[in-house]
């Protein structure tokens, strides 16, 4: 018989297979990176040591990881709530900007005490994120217009708007920093070094979201709408308002990511503030698959990748190489998931 035995694809892949597949594929990707670095005349072992020391191996490294994780958990959650019901919010980047802008407005132009200003920033940012997706959401819910294209296009609008504000009307006249506003009057309290309250809040939001959707009527009704809209109609569940609600929730989560960025990490509104967190949220959500709680380790992995990239850049490795490494890892994980679905056909 042939040397290669035939394989077949499982429809439901057990999670231990996924774990093994991902582990192997990450190793394979790291191997490719090591070989490439060696070919460039760099010592992969030395670099690996440096990366470990400056990420998980040091206090600053860990603080950085937590700061990266904060927005990633939230944009990941934003994309994840949509995918759960078959909706694709590709616009988390834009909603993040919207949330950041609203929070900045409160932080710059009010002189309220922190205890009032911070909650006001959170509410304003969440509302702004939701408002930024309102038109794509309503068009999807009632007219069936694909939310993918509309939410994506608004990202560019949001990004340019923030550049305009940060260089124009809201530009920093004090220090004259480029494309940036002044420092906000209030900040989220810091808990551990640079790690601020936003990290804990983001963790809490992800956990609350997971528990809330599993235990609420809203979670059940939206699951029905996502799985089979015809059956939802049959059961008397109105599909359009629930599509709207899920997308608004998604926008609000991404908006919160923007709030925590300006109020905790960056302290000002800057051009490029979103730092691709909105797009990386898609990766985080896909890595988490069906489970909301899995967003936390997925965000950690993504943060590690980002942090590694920055460390490598400090050693004169070009930023495009870093992007390539990121892409390679994500590709390897996707391939690993796919390969984990194939089992050898058993012949007796």
């Amino acid at each position: 018989m042939s040397a290669v035995s035939p394989r077949t694809r499982l429809t439901v892949v057990p999670s231990h297979r996924i774990a093994v597949g991902r582990g192997l594929s990450i190793l394979a990707a790291l191997g490719i990176v090591a070989i490439t670095l060696a070919a460039m005349g760099r010592s992969p072992i030395e670099l690996a040591g440096l990366v470990v020391r400056s990420t998980v191996g040091s206090r600053f490294g860990i603080e950085d990881l937590a700061l990266f994780m904060t927005p990633l958990m939230l944009t990941g959650a934003a994309v994840w709530v949509g995918i759960r019901v078959n909706l694709w919010n590709i616009g988390a980047e834009g909603q993040l900007y919207a949330g950041a802008t609203a929070a900045t407005a409160v932080g710059l132009f009010t002189h309220w005490p922190a205890i009032v200003a911070l909650p006001a920033m959170v509410v304003a940012g969440a509302l702004a994120g939701a408002a930024w997706i309102f038109i794509p959401a309503a068009a999807r819910a009632w007219l069936g217009v694909s939310e993918i294209v509309t939410s994506l296009l608004l990202n560019f609008v949001a990004s340019l708007l923030v550049y305009y504000l940060a260089t124009g009307p809201w530009a920093d006249r004090v220090t004259g920093a480029l494309a940036s506003t002044e420092r906000l009057h209030v900040a989220l309290p810091e808990l551990w070094g640079a790690v601020h309250l936003g990290f804990l809040l983001a963790l809490g939001i992800v956990v609350g979201l997971g528990v809330g959707l599993a235990k609420s009527r809203f979670g059940y009704e939206t699951a029905v709408c996502g799985s089979n809209p015809q059956a939802a109609h049959y059961a008397g569940i109105k599909v359009a308002p629930r599509i709207l609600a899920v997308l608004l929730l998604s926008g609000a989560l991404a908006g919160l990511a923007g709030v925590f960025e300006v109020a905790g990490t960056v302290h000002r509104l800057q051009g490029g503030l979103a730092n691709n967190y909105g797009y990386l949220g898609i990766v985080v959500a896909l890595l988490a698959r069906g489970s909301c709680f899995a967003l936390i380790p997925a965000a950690l992995l993504m943060a590690l990748i980002l942090d590694t990239g920055i460390v490598l850049q400090t050693t004169q490795i070009s930023s495009s190489a870093v992007l390539a490494i990121t892409g390679l890892l994500v590709l390897a994980i996707a391939a690993g998931d796919e390969m984990a679905a194939y089992v050898r056909v058993n012949r007796n």
Binding site: Y220, A223, V224, S227, Q230, A231
Partner: peptide, 19 residues
């Protein structure tokens, strides 16, 4: 097509009328 959500669990499908 009408009365079931094929991708959801038996429990979720049976709850459709009395959830």
């Amino acid at each position: 097509k009408r009365a079931l959500m094929p991708g959801l669990s038996v429990a979720e499908n049976m709850a459709l009328r009395e959830y």
